[in-house]
Design a protein around this nucleic acid. Structure first.
Lengths: 142, 142
DNA sequence: CATCAAGCTTGAAATAGTCAAGCTTGAAAT
DNA sequence: ATTTCAAGCTTGACTATTTCAAGCTTGATG
């Protein structure tokens, strides 16, 4: 690799491929752990992101999906008794999502499973921090 | 939670969310540029990864998807005259995928479009290199 | 040969995603 | 006050994507 100035297009392609690849691995990993718990991959992601009460919009943003998609997913979680839609305390348009106690319990179990053999486990804590830093920069500025 | 040294579970969740978020942005970005060219997001990804002749399996690996999925996508690209399935020179089981000249032309156009306003453009070249490095480490070891 | 694994395809089914349209409510301007 | 516009959520129709199991051909191995 003496001079190979790597055209931007090549770099772009490779980076996209890598990000995509890692995301796929994570999704597969989530899926593997989720299915035994009776969850689809998307449901598990939603559960993972439910760090506390939030609106549909907020959840959709965290999942990087459309609100209509969030509706679809929350519907299922609600049918399973894992989540509740309550009236939002200050905004009557909005719903406030809250995990039921079963939902919370399942979430805890899920999080434990997710840590095990995570695709990110190959990185040291420091590297993970660096990665997080870079990703935040990339995501924020786009 | 006085000193909260960030439990691994929290770090894991945040990193996953970030990777996923960036991947979604990339997919959306690819999609935006692809549709005007008459391609779906998956087709565009396939085209992006077709850096040269390769087998179905190889393409599937690059796209981080199942071979059956690759079949589905290549079918469409083939119908559009962008790609060809040839006999593999040494392995009669395998197909060798080759872009047609139209495919190549379209790929060039696509790559140009993809660079513009890429979600990764917020990072400096150095940062991109660092990110690539970390991602490779993560992907390889998982 | 015989067996087993790899490469690819198929078809069925489930999942996930987009998009446009509609309802309710909030906010802001007039 | 009233109007107007935007935000939050849902719905429905449609499309794309993915999984899975099963099957065929061929390669590699004993």
């Amino acid at each position: 690799m003496t001079m190979s100035p790597e055209t931007p297009a090549v770099a772009e392609r490779e980076l996209c491929g890598l990000v995509n690849g890692l995301a796929q691995r994570i999704a597969a990993h989530v899926r593997e752990r989720a299915v035994p718990l009776g969850l689809t991959s998307a449901q598990a992601t939603a559960l993972r992101e439910m760090t506390g009460p939030m609106t549909m919009r907020e959840l959709a943003d965290r999942m990087s999906c459309e609100p209509s998609n969030a509706t679809f997913i929350v519907d299922k979680l609600e049918k399973q008794g894992l989540i509740e839609r309550r009236a939002h305390p200050t905004d009557r348009r909005a719903k406030q999502l809250v995990l039921t106690s079963e939902g919370n319990t399942l979430r805890e179990r899920l999080l434990e499973l997710l840590i095990q053999d995570s695709p990110l486990a190959g990185l040291t804590t420091q590297q993970q921090r660096a990665l997080q830093d870079l990703l935040e920069k990339a995501v924020i500025r786009s």
